Structures are given as C-alpha cells and as structure tokens.
Amino acid sequence: MASRTFDSLSDFMTAESLESGVFRVNDNGLPIDASLEKHVGRPLLVFLHGAKTRKVNLPWFVGAGMTAERDVSRLSISDPSLYIREELTLAWYAGNANQGDISHKLASLISKCAELIHAERIILIGGSGGGFASLSIGAHIDGSIALVWNPQTHIRKYYKRFVDDYEKVAWRESGQTLKDLQRLDLTTVYSQPLKNTVIYLQSATDEFHIQNHLEPFAQKLHPENRCYFYSGTWGDGHIPPPKNQLATWISFALAIDLDDQILWQNLEANTRSAGATQPTKTVISN
C-alpha cells in the first residue's frame, strides 16, 4: 500500500518533500510504484529489476539487501508495464502504448527524488533487463553512474519469446508495435556523446550476451563516453556476479572520483594485466 499517491508525474514534480516509504505516481492509467529509503545528503542508489517469476507480486522492489548496511538512500522502482497483464514477465522499463517511452519520465522522477533528498550522486543498478533500464534511464541523467551486469543493449536482440510477449501485451493490442519505441537500441543511444558513466560487468561464459549485446555496444560506443568494461567468470552462462563482488563494485561506484582521469587510466591498465576478457575499454571524457 502506497503511503503517498501523486495524481500524475507533473504532480510529483511539484512536490516539496518526500519521506521514506512506498509512493505511487499515476501516469496515463498505470501506476509507477517506488520504495524510498531516505538518508538526506547521501548518494541515491536506484535499483531496477529484471524479469520476474510467477512467485513475484507487484509492486516489485529490489535492492534493499544491498543497501542495508550502507549510509545511502535507496530508491527501488517497479516496472509499470508489468501491471498490464500478469503473464508479462519482462518489459525493460521501456514503456507501453498508454505511457509511451517512459525512460525520460523515470529519469525525471529519479532526478526529482535526488533533488528532494539532496543526494550527492545517483547510481542506477541492475542486471539483464534491469541493466538495459539502468543504461537507458542513466543516459538521460547527466553525472549519473549506471552499474550493470549482463545487460541487454538492444531489446530486439534478446530471446524472441520475451520480445514477442512484450510487444503483444504492451503495444500491439493497442494498435502499435515496437517500431513506435525509439530507444530499443542502446548501441545507437550510446553512439552519441553522453554525460553519464557506465560500469559494465559481463559474465565471461554468457556467449549470447557477449555476442549480441556487449560487443555491438562496445563497438559503437562514442569515443567521448566514459564506459568501463569488466568481464569475470562467475559460473556458467547468464548469472550475476556474486553478492560480495557486487558489494565491492557498489563501493567503487560510491567512492570513485569521476573527474580523476589518472584513476580511470589505471583501472584500464590493471584490468588488462589481470587478463580480463576483451573488450576492455575505458574512455575518459573531458
């Protein structure tokens, strides 16, 4: 149950304060549900989920365990498209016929939250479909960091049954198709200069995502964009890094000086010497 409900995103954007708890923003007939744990003046960690299972009840808020012992604020957002029909399990926070492309809406919501709680940094965190969402939304938020693992970078290049389900439920039944969505392909989005930072973690045994998502993204990445790739062997296939490694990467994202070019150059050199799987690319923007 939401502790506070906003009639629209415009209503939310006029809020003068925001307290810890669950809040709802109604948007064109669907709710954007979010859970906030507020610590004024601290970094804001934004958690975005991937595909849900049948056991998951909406709204679905992830990330609480990763922030339990950290002096940070946490914002967990449930993908509103999943409310359209129960059998839809993955929608990438990419929107639907009612709401349109919601990446910019969620970016505005996140930025407003950060403003109200005086967050010193915004870090978007997610894997797989939540990784796509973190990259997509982060591209709208200058100075943000997207910490992602095994993300999709082009929705149409994911497994066909998930793509078809999403198109049918979220778009086609209202007479539209995925062709109406402009931000399906993040390789194109990130081929333009952006002002966010990406930390991209990839399972070295997840060949599907390496070939279809990581390599095209890295190849088209604009030379001014700052993106750090790291590949590790965590098990077989499409699995996330162990929790202790994710905790380390979160600590890194919290501590890194984004203006320290020497630090980024050293990271690239250290990764090469450690034998990380290619491509490993760190690009420093001015």
Rank of each mutant, 00 (worst) to 15 (best):
I137P: 02
W92S: 04
I84P: 08
L124G: 05
L90S: 09
L75R: 05
S103W: 01
D101M: 09
I84E: 13
W92G: 02
I102L: 14
L124Q: 07
G100T: 12
L124A: 07
I110W: 03
I125K: 01
R121F: 04
N96Q: 14
Y83R: 14
I110V: 15
D101G: 06
I117C: 11
E87P: 01
E86F: 05
R121C: 02
A107G: 10
Y83I: 06
N98H: 12
L90N: 14
K105T: 14
E120V: 13
W92P: 04
G95M: 11
K105H: 13
L75G: 03
I84Y: 07
L88R: 03
G130M: 01
E87R: 12
E120G: 12
C113I: 15
A114K: 02
S108I: 07
A119Q: 08
G130F: 00
L90K: 08
L90T: 14
G100H: 13
I137Q: 00
I125S: 03
I77Y: 06
G95W: 09
C113P: 02
K112S: 07
E86C: 00
L82A: 06
L88Y: 07
H140K: 09
C113N: 10
I137C: 03
L88H: 08
I77N: 04
Y93Q: 08
I137N: 01
N98I: 00
A97S: 15
S81K: 03
A139D: 11
G100A: 13
I84V: 15
A97G: 09
I125P: 00
H140Q: 13
G129H: 06
C113M: 13
I102M: 14
G138E: 03
G138L: 02
I141P: 00
G127T: 09
K105F: 04
S111Q: 15
S103I: 08
L106M: 12
G130K: 00
F132W: 05
S128D: 11
A114D: 06
K105Q: 12
Q99H: 04
I122N: 02
G126W: 03
S78Y: 01
G130N: 00
I117T: 11
S81G: 10
L106T: 00
A91I: 07
P80V: 12
N96R: 10
G95F: 09
A133W: 05
I110T: 08
I117P: 09
S81C: 13
T89V: 13
G130W: 00
A139C: 06
A133Q: 02
Y93I: 12
I125G: 02
E115G: 10
S136I: 00
L106C: 05
A97T: 10
G127C: 08
A97K: 10
L135K: 03
A97M: 11
A139W: 01
S76D: 11
R85Q: 15
L75K: 04
G127Y: 08
F132A: 01
I117R: 08
G95Y: 08
S128V: 06
E120C: 14
A133K: 01
A97W: 12
N96I: 01
Y83P: 01
A119Y: 09
S108C: 12
R85G: 05
Y93C: 10
A114M: 04
S108G: 12
S128Q: 05
C113E: 12
A114R: 03
G100N: 12
A114N: 04
A114E: 05
I123K: 01
A107D: 11
I122P: 01
I122C: 06
K105W: 03
A97Q: 08
R85H: 14
H118D: 15
N96W: 05
